[in-house]
């Protein structure tokens, strides 16, 4: 750098400092960091209060994604929902039907780019919560049905190579989903993923994972990170450039 360039640079910094700038930060600001929102509804919506923050912390630790500290809890009709395109819906019991306004808002949110992950904490396959969810989903998407997410879907390889979906429990062997064209807009898990991620204030796991303990918990985290990665990168890992690598690691034959 010559003298003229140096002076120019210094002048620019002085000028910028003199502008009305409240502060300089090392990132674009907390608002612009990745955050997961939690759906608030009439009923026990916050069954695993610490789980989502734990997940975002793991995401921050293990991936290049920069995450925010907050987990906003928002109702379906709140306009700010659109600031958080990844939304978790959890519960452990049946709940009353959502108002029509709320189902309409959820549909608009999901079709405009949002993604919803439903996690049942009750530990029962097709329990009361899931039945309520299925009822609501027919209202949100009358013409789309939940279907099994195939095991070769990019969700299972968006970051970790995951063989099967597990959470605190492993009672359901598959995830279900609703697609908008090729994009998953909704994922339904019945294995209590949030239960596997939750910690108490002392840093201890809130629940034990069954039947495989901490190994299962790790696999559940990996699935959670994959869900986040899928939300942010969609089918990136199904791009042709990745396919040979992934097949090789899965020890599948490459033609």
């Amino acid at each position: 750098m010559n003298r003229r360039e140096y002076l120019k640079c210094m002048a620019s910094l002085i000028a910028l400092s003199s502008a009305a700038i409240p502060g300089l930060a090392i990132a674009m600001g907390p608002e612009d960091k990745f955050t997961i929102a939690q759906l608030k509804y009439k009923g026990a919506f916050n069954t695993r209060p610490t789980a989502l923050r734990r997940l975002t912390l793991e995401v921050e630790k293990r991936t290049s994604i920069s995450t925010g500290p907050k987990i906003p809890r928002l109702s379906a009709t709140q306009k700010s929902l659109y600031q958080y395109p990844l939304l978790f819906w959890s519960g452990d019991q049946a709940f009353d039907s959502l108002p029509q306004k709320a189902t309409q808002a959820l549909r608009d949110f999901l079709l405009s780019g949002g993604m919803l992950v439903v996690d049942a904490s009750d530990g029962v396959v097709d329990g009361p919560f899931v039945q309520s969810i299925r009822r609501e989903l027919t209202a949100v998407f009358p013409n789309r049905k939940l279907s099994s997410i195939p095991s070769d879907h990019v969700l299972y390889k968006s970051f970790f190579l995951v063989d099967k979906p597990v959470g605190r429990l492993a009672i359901s062997k598959e995830l279900e989903g609703i697609f908008d064209e090729d994009r998953l807009v909704l994922i339904l898990s019945q294995n209590d993923m949030l239960g596997a991620w939750a910690k108490d204030n002392f840093g201890s796991w809130t629940f034990n994972c069954e039947p495989k303990g901490d190994k299962q918990r790790e696999m559940s985290y990996r699935l959670g990170i994959n869900i986040v990665m899928y939300a942010l990168c969609t089918n990136y890992k199904s791009d042709q450039v990745h396919v040979p690598f992934i097949l090789k690691r899965r020890k599948w034959k490459v033609d």
């Binding site: 290049s64 970051f159 790790e218 990996r222 990168c233 890992k237 450039v241 990745h242 992934i246 690691r249």
Partner: peptide, 22 residues
Amino acid sequence: SFFILRTNQNIRVAGNDELSLI
């Protein structure tokens, strides 16, 4: 597309064979 999904600052809890990273 090419995205940087993990950097050297991230904790590595899994071997490369368990990841889809290239």
